[in-house]
Design a protein around this nucleic acid. Structure first.
Length: 484
RNA sequence: GGCGAAGUGGCCGAGUGGCUAGGCAGAGGUCUGCAAAACCUCGUACAGCGGUUCGAGUCCGCUCUUCGCCUCCA
């Protein structure tokens, strides 16, 4: 089997992955700013990193996964202008900022839970780490990398060699030429960015600091919390591509200027979700809210849809694409269900080659689309084996189940549990339904026995109309509730 | 203007220079009373033009097009 290779945005190559501390992997992923419900873009990001974490754990490492919650409202415009987003939402909802951030934090985790995204080990909030951020800022001032200007603290980009090395934006003078960055009177250099902002009188979320009442800049929370929980050098830092610049370049500058050590060993950036080829974003009105999407599609279908493309590729959202995923996923679920219900036979199925190919795909920079492709190939081989009269031996059956439950279940998180797969009708009334169905199927099989196909087809059609599907097999008639 | 990514069959979407990606949809077939499901077979896909090579979707160059970032953003 191959070993894990990860595409490092910093070197722009795939590199073999070894953690800094043997057996332990530290991961920090930029979390959401909580002033609205999560959308499909959030889902792509956090589902992707969920698989990263699950796979690295599967490889035997202890993973410490930190994902922040940005609950300090940053500004709607650029680093210095506009309204605080959370405060704005609070005004719209006629409440206060803390209630907004709390409510949408809960909403975020609800949605992620439904997508099967495992909770991070630590989900620190920016508001809960103001002292840490102040301490980092003070350290930067002390070292001459930051300065005060009218109660605001700015990071001095000129003081840090290599600013912009992640995004490739290293020539600051070239940046200003055609860009939209405006010269601020209290910044020494246009590229300097805010570490601490003085609060205007109407500003609600503010804290006391050595520089007066204010609030932290956006970039500083990630550096402060990452270093607090994971150390000054971490293995993996993940986030959306749109955050490479300026956010991640600023994080690097702050952290490395303060510590003199490398901040992150592997930078991972996931790509965007687009709608009709255009980025889905909060500021555009084209985002697809997850709660809305869940009313039309099983969250597992959304997860599967996301993992069918690679995390570094753009994913174009459309109903036809997602419907194709729904059909494909149910095919996989059906194969697994069939396996669970299959009587023991004598046939064999060699699972090892499929497992090796799946692991290779995941080791190759978490290539989930290829991994899913292999699982489909496996499902085909499995169905073929089950079609044969000799079926599958108990041993092969267990190996096949183990493969599916490990890769499709544990690692990719796209497989329902055994209970869910076997339950025709979960919940209230299920038992009664089973009994009624067995009566109907018995009547139908009697009709078929006396070749009264008009009657048997009537029973089937009426059930179809109620969303219950029948399948006649050599072992009798199976039924299932059609779900979508 | 600067930095970066990408253009693959009807749709989605992988792809390390030679060996089938995969899924959805479609066509034909096996099985079945008929269906459904499953399985088998089928599409001469790689934006265009040059070049390197015995051989390129895969490397190089040019052209065209699209997208992201340079402002909050997963």
């Amino acid at each position: 089997m191959s070993s894990l290779h990860i595409y490092n945005s910093l070197s722009r190559t795939k590199e073999p992955f070894e953690p800094l501390v043997p057996g332990m992997v530290s991961i920090y992923v930029c979390g959401p700013t909580v002033y609205g419900h999560a959308h499909l873009g959030h889902a792509k990001s956090y589902v992707s990193f969920d698989v990263v974490v699950r796979w690295i754990r599967k490889l035997g490492y202890r993973v410490k996964y930190v994902q922040n919650i940005t609950d300090v409202g940053h500004l709607t415009d650029d680093a210095d202008e506009g309204e605080d987003k959370i405060q704005k939402q609070a005004r719209l909802e006629k409440t206060d900022p803390m209630e907004i951030s709390q409510a949408y934090t809960r909403s975020y985790f609800e949605d992620m839970d439904r997508l099967g995204v495992l909770r991070p080990n630590i989900a620190p909030t920016a508001t809960g780490h103001i002292p840490e951020q102040i301490a980092l800022i003070a350290r930067l001032i002390e070292k001459g990398h930051a300065y005060e200007s009218n109660g605001n603290i700015y990071f001095s980009v000129d003081s840090f060699e290599g600013y912009g090395k992640l995004s490739g934006r290293t020539d600051q003078s070239a940046l200003q030429a055609g860009g939209r960055v405006e010269q601020r009177s209290d910044k020494r250099s246009p590229s300097d960015f805010a570490l601490w902002k003085k609060a205007d009188p109407g500003h609600l979320m503010k804290w006391m600091s050595p520089w007066g009442e204010g609030y932290p800049g956006w970039h500083v929370e990630c550096s402060a919390m990452s270093m607090k929980y994971l150390g000054e050098t971490i293995d993996i830092h993940g986030g959306g591509m749109e955050n490479k610049f300026p956010h991640h370049d600023c994080e690097i500058a702050q952290a490395e200027a303060a510590t003199g050590k490398p901040y992150v060993r592997f930078w991972m950036h996931n790509n965007m979700v687009t709608v009709d080829g255009v980025k889905m974003g909060k500021s555009l009105k084209n985002f697809v809210n997850l709660k809305d999407l869940f009313t039309a599609y099983d969250p597992l279908v959304i997860r599967f849809f996301i993992l069918q493309s690679h995390y570094r590729s753009q994913l174009d959202f459309s109903d036809t694409a997602i419907q194709a995923s729904r059909t494909g996923l149910s095919k996989l679920q059906e194969a697994c269900r069939r396996l669970l219900e299959a009587p023991a036979g004598t046939g064999r199925l060699d699972v090892a080659p499929f497992a090796a190919k799946t692991a290779d795909a995941l080791n190759d920079d978490f290539n989930t689309p290829v991994a899913i492709g292999v699982i489909f190939e496996f499902a085909k081989a499995l169905n073929s084996a089950l079609d044969r009269p000799e079926g599958l031996s108990a041993e092969s059956r267990n190996e096949a189940l183990g493969y599916l439950e490990t890769y499709a279940g544990e690692v990719l998180g796209i497989l329902k549990s055994r209970e869910e797969l076997l339950a025709n009708e979960a919940g209230e009334g299920g038992e009664t339904l089973e009994e009624v169905m067995s009566v109907l199927l018995e009547l139908r099989s009697q009709a078929r026995a006396r070749k009264d196909f008009a009657m048997s087809d009537t029973i089937r059609d009426l059930l179809i109309a109620k969303g219950i599907e029948l399948k006649d097999t050599k072992d009798g008639t199976a039924w299932s509730k059609k779900r979508d």
